[in-house]
Design a protein around this nucleic acid. Sequence first.
DNA 1: TAATATCCTATTAAACTGGTAGGCTTAGTA
DNA 2: TACTAAGCCTACCAGTTTAATAGGATATTA
Lengths: 143, 143
Amino acid sequence: MLSKKTKYAINALLYIAKHVAEQPISVSRIAEERNIPLKFLEAILRELKNARIVNSKKGRYGGYSLNGTPEEIDLARVIRLFDGAIAILPCATHDFYVPCEECVDEATCGIRQVALEIRNATVAQLKDATLANLIEREKGKEN
Amino acid sequence: MLSKKTKYAINALLYIAKHVAEQPISVSRIAEERNIPLKFLEAILRELKNARIVNSKKGRYGGYSLNGTPEEIDLARVIRLFDGAIAILPCATHDFYVPCEECVDEATCGIRQVALEIRNATVAQLKDATLANLIEREKGKEN
DNA sequence: TAATATCCTATTAAACTGGTAGGCTTAGTA
DNA sequence: TACTAAGCCTACCAGTTTAATAGGATATTA
């Protein structure tokens, strides 16, 4: 399950993506519009900024803007940032590899093979899910 | 990520499946062979028994045996038992459905559509991963 | 009746999650 | 220059979950 942090992050990014013309957008505006605790969202956007997914502008009339187009930002990136690995086993992740303690022989482990196949499929689906794609999907379902 | 409980459960089931002829097999034997804390594994096998995935026999020379063939027991069932939902969002699960708090309109939500697609693919892969299939995979990699 | 199993309940330490509090720094604008 | 609205940073906290451990009750077989 995705953490609330990740879900808040995705929703905030979608909000910015839908209002690209009005960038930069302040944390307080997003917090109000999407019903996210202000201080919590502040921390989230700071993390997104440190990960270079958004840019920030300090001071009055400052706020956050996307670093890149909505086509370039996908869910895999956001989820990895906040929730870490996407795979179901630590020995089957690409970015966060850690061997399984319980494992006798990783090379032959059947569970690991399954975990790798699932991860590959899931990551592909999450990379397809860009901000632009998500907004498209919502429009498609509206009628 | 799968919990240790789930991983222990899968390993215990695989151990029993590999020694079908010697059923029932005691918790202490499995715990020793697979390096799993005895009392913890005890609780795990009891849960598997309550979920009718294994059978138990009390008293001396008792132990646990598979309830069904290794072809009939798959990872989806075991994971759902210990870790709950397989989907990445509560609104995208089949067995544990709960609406997303953050959600404005579930019917059009793009994230949910992605989550449903991922869940469908993942569940299919986990259902294919039966105990028999996992043992097959290990044999295939051995040479 | 001794030995060896499963079964059951309670407790616990550590980590994680979701959130709050308070204050500092920076940048436009009157 | 002073005000104000914004991001930036650190510390803390309460509740939940995870991964166990402890101790004993009950059942079965030789």
